[in-house]
Computed example of a mutant assay.
Amino acid sequence: MPPIAQLAAAAAATRSYPAVPGLPDIAITSEIVAAIRAGAWIVFNLSGGKDSSAALFAVNLQLDSLGHPRARRMAIHADLGRAEWDSTPDTVARIAASADVPLTVVRRAAGDLVDRWIQRFESGKRRYEALETYNLIGPWSSASLRFCQSEMKAAVIGPALARMLRGQQIISVLGLRRDESHNRAATPIAKADLRHAKAGNRHGTAITLWHPIAYWNSEDVFRAHGTLGITLHEAYSIWGATRLSCRYCIFASLHDLSASAAAPANTEAYRELVGIEARSTFPFQPTRWLADISPHLLSGGLRADVERAKADQLERRHLEASMPAGLRYVKGWPPRMPTLAEAEDIAAARRPILARHRLENRYPTGSAVQARFAELRVAAGRQMSS
């Protein structure tokens, strides 16, 4: 039996509680059942999207059937600031209120997600100027670097729960589904979360992640909204999006980006993000410029800036491809010293990129690049030995 099928079979064996008519059972384990019966805190992670809302309402009913006290349930929402739809805070509040669970809203202290994208590019420019990176680093989060989720949500919610519910057993409910993506295909029903409550910590705090709708599909989720009377975010009900996250998500489809751009309340954020594309020369998605979604919303000057950025991106990629492949980033970079000829190629490739972003050219010659690599190798050696 394939591993996923084994997980499904194991989960099915624990599904001994009646599901809502017309909806699938929730995925639950014997450990989660025991924790619920022991009165663990149940915390619903609410984004305002369809999956987290469906998970909240479906689990609430199961908790009632298990005799879990409602006084030990709460919802939590990580507010991403300008990146959020304007209606998301109110939608989240309405969903929590209709489910009769108190809501806590948390935010990253160092600014919102748009600030984080801007800060990432500014930091990347400083590192590139200092020849601490081989290629210029763009502002956006990506499939391989999901700081929009890790830093802005998990790293804000986790510590908040550990503080608020210190010494408690906490079940953190997330509306993740296996059919959402290849990366989520092996989502477990439940697992210990040791990031913010280490095993054996002195307070006795324990956090477990629970994914009760892991086996549901999108149709099940929408059906739950109709059956249970759950508020549906305007992104779906008015603008026809298939999923909700930020106004503009680095994972969003062309359809969903277009749906977001159609909402007048999202226009200002659209122009701000396109402005970051224009300044950075990095498209919002690896193969798609956000500027191309609704160019009619942009001023003539901003459209011209984007066209220059596209040309500069092509030049930058060509220049970076011309640099010695054997010196590209690996753990413990740089891997070796460049020859003088290689160092001269690096200096020549960096020159127009530095100029494009108005950065100081601190290492303009091959010998200067070699000297910098020598410094970097010494520093890397110290780090590896410490």
Score class of each variant (00 low, 15 high):
23 L>W: 02
24 P>Q: 01
27 A>V: 02
30 S>I: 03
30 S>W: 00
30 S>C: 04
31 E>H: 03
31 E>K: 04
32 I>K: 03
34 A>Y: 03
35 A>P: 01
38 A>C: 04
38 A>T: 04
40 A>I: 07
40 A>Y: 02
40 A>N: 01
43 V>R: 00
44 F>C: 00
45 N>Q: 13
45 N>P: 09
46 L>M: 03
47 S>N: 07
48 G>I: 12
48 G>P: 10
48 G>D: 11
51 D>N: 04
53 S>Q: 05
53 S>V: 08
55 A>P: 03
55 A>M: 04
57 F>A: 13
60 N>P: 00
61 L>T: 09
61 L>Y: 01
63 L>A: 02
64 D>C: 08
64 D>R: 10
64 D>Y: 02
65 S>R: 15
65 S>Q: 14
66 L>E: 03
67 G>C: 07
68 H>F: 00
70 R>L: 05
70 R>I: 05
71 A>I: 02
71 A>T: 06
71 A>Q: 04
72 R>N: 01
72 R>L: 04
75 A>R: 09
75 A>K: 09
77 H>T: 12
78 A>V: 11
79 D>V: 03
81 G>M: 08
83 A>F: 14
83 A>K: 14
84 E>A: 09
85 W>A: 11
86 D>H: 14
88 T>M: 11
92 V>D: 06
96 A>H: 05
96 A>W: 08
100 D>V: 06
102 P>A: 01
103 L>G: 03
105 V>P: 05
105 V>E: 03
108 R>P: 05
109 A>Y: 11
111 G>H: 07
111 G>E: 10
112 D>E: 09
115 D>G: 01
115 D>S: 13
116 R>F: 00
118 I>N: 14
120 R>Q: 09
120 R>Y: 01
121 F>M: 12
121 F>K: 12
123 S>E: 15
123 S>A: 15
126 R>D: 04
127 R>S: 12
127 R>N: 11
129 E>C: 11
129 E>A: 15
130 A>D: 13
132 E>K: 12
133 T>V: 14
134 Y>A: 09
134 Y>T: 07
134 Y>I: 06
138 G>A: 07
139 P>M: 08
139 P>F: 09
141 S>M: 07
142 S>Y: 09
144 S>R: 13
145 L>M: 11
146 R>E: 10
147 F>N: 06
147 F>L: 07
149 Q>K: 14
152 M>W: 07
158 G>A: 04
158 G>T: 10
159 P>D: 05
159 P>E: 10
160 A>C: 05
161 L>I: 05
161 L>Y: 04
162 A>V: 09
162 A>Y: 06
164 M>G: 12
164 M>I: 12
166 R>V: 14
166 R>D: 14
168 Q>W: 00
168 Q>T: 07
169 Q>P: 10
169 Q>M: 12
170 I>K: 03
170 I>F: 05
